[in-house]
């Protein structure tokens, strides 16, 4: 696992401003109230005031002690924000409640990294995040994890997208982590769109459960869930669901996983539910080893077996991030460049 400095350089730092860091359960110190972009500590009374006046309902939170942020991108504004969750104490359970609001016509790019300090063991990160995307607004949520080998991570994300709005989630887990269970629920109104893409490397003894549920409530709403995993010996589960309710809605699920080790297990559970004959829902999946034909092809170009396999795995990863934003791709490509995957 890398240290904070490396993490910021290699994973997280995109030069976005503001860049907010949430350490353990300490409150967010850096707040900013820009006309277009507002960043507040979740416990700031202004947050409660805004949520009540906007009639935005959050997921239940029974914690007494927690940290978190409130980010609001104002109507027809554009914003970039970087966030980082950091744990620095052994055994600490970090509890986070976040709220993200992108008002009508707004456009927010959020880049989030997560990290625990090198010496920290057995930390747990729990997060409740509510995301509200207004009419014709767009949020691109980019996450690159770098928790520790013994970290456990349990985010609960709820996303509400109003008419014509767009939610895009790009979620990358490449560094070793003990467990992640993340199954966001996304509700789409008329003409709204959601695309979630994840790429994971599952290390031996890791359990990564990345799924999601998209509810196509509105007319002509569109949802896509793309899961890609390279499994080096752990457990990967993709429990995904798309519910076609709105007239003319469309949904697609796919899951692609390469198994590099006999200990690796992959479970893909796609669920498509339709209660409207005028919906179109599809799914496809590939789970298996790297194709021997592809490896032998590269061997005829002079590569030995291990190098050939590594080239194909990196190609698989590159394919998975192909439609992610350029900045995410560049970060991931630099991670892959340095990575000796150990298989």
């Amino acid at each position: 696992m890398m240290n904070l400095e490396d993490f910021l350089d290699n994973y997280s730092n995109l030069g976005f401003n503001p860049y907010i860091v949430l350490n353990d359960n300490e409150p967010l110190l850096m707040e900013s109230e820009d006309d277009s972009l507002e960043v507040l500590s979740i416990e700031n009374p202004l947050v409660k005031e805004y949520l009540e006046s906007s009639k935005l309902k959050l997921q239940d939170n029974e914690w007494k002690e927690y940290t978190g942020y409130f980010i609001k991108c104002a109507k027809n504004s554009f914003g970039n924000v970087q966030t980082c969750f950091l744990t620095s104490q052994k055994g600490l359970e970090q509890r986070v409640q976040n709220v993200i609001v992108v008002e009508e016509g707004g456009h927010l790019d959020l880049f989030t990294g997560c990290l625990s300090s090198g010496h920290v063991k057995e930390n747990v990160h729990r997060a409740i995040t509510d995301i509200f995307i207004g009419k014709n607004a767009k949020l691109t949520f980019n996450m690159i994890h770098s928790w520790g080998k013994t970290s456990k991570v349990y985010p609960k994300v709820g996303v509400h997208v109003q008419k014509g709005g767009t939610y895009i989630s790009n979620y990358i887990v490449w560094e070793e982590v003990k467990e992640i269970i993340s199954n966001p629920v996304i509700e789409l109104s008329d003409g709204a769109r959601a695309i979630t893409q994840s790429l994971s490397y599952i290390h031996p003894n890791s359990n990564i459960d990345l799924g999601g549920d998209i509810k196509l409530l509105g007319k002509a709403s569109v949802g896509e869930i793309h899961s890609s995993a390279v499994n080096g010996g752990g457990s990967f589960v993709a429990t995904t669901s798309i519910e076609g309710i709105g007239d003319g809605s469309k949904g697609h699920i796919d899951c692609n996983a390469l198994l590099l080790d006999d200990r690796a297990t992959v479970t893909a559970i796609p669920k498509l539910y339709s209660k409207n004959s005028n919906t179109q829902l599809t799914h496809e999946a590939f789970l298996g080893r790297v194709s021997n034909e592809e490896i032998e092809y590269l061997q005829t170009k002079g590569f030995n077996y291990d190098d050939a396999e590594e080239i194909i795995v990196k190609g698989f990863a590159n394919k998975a991030i192909e439609s992610m934003p350029e900045r995410v791709r560049e970060k991931m490509e630099s991670i892959l460049e340095k990575a000796k995957l150990g298989f």
Binding site: L298, D307, I311, G315, A320, E322
Partner: peptide, 13 residues
Amino acid sequence: LKGVKFENIVKES
């Protein structure tokens, strides 16, 4: 070879 470009082969060789 999806995701593998000729220039990747060049770089690695």
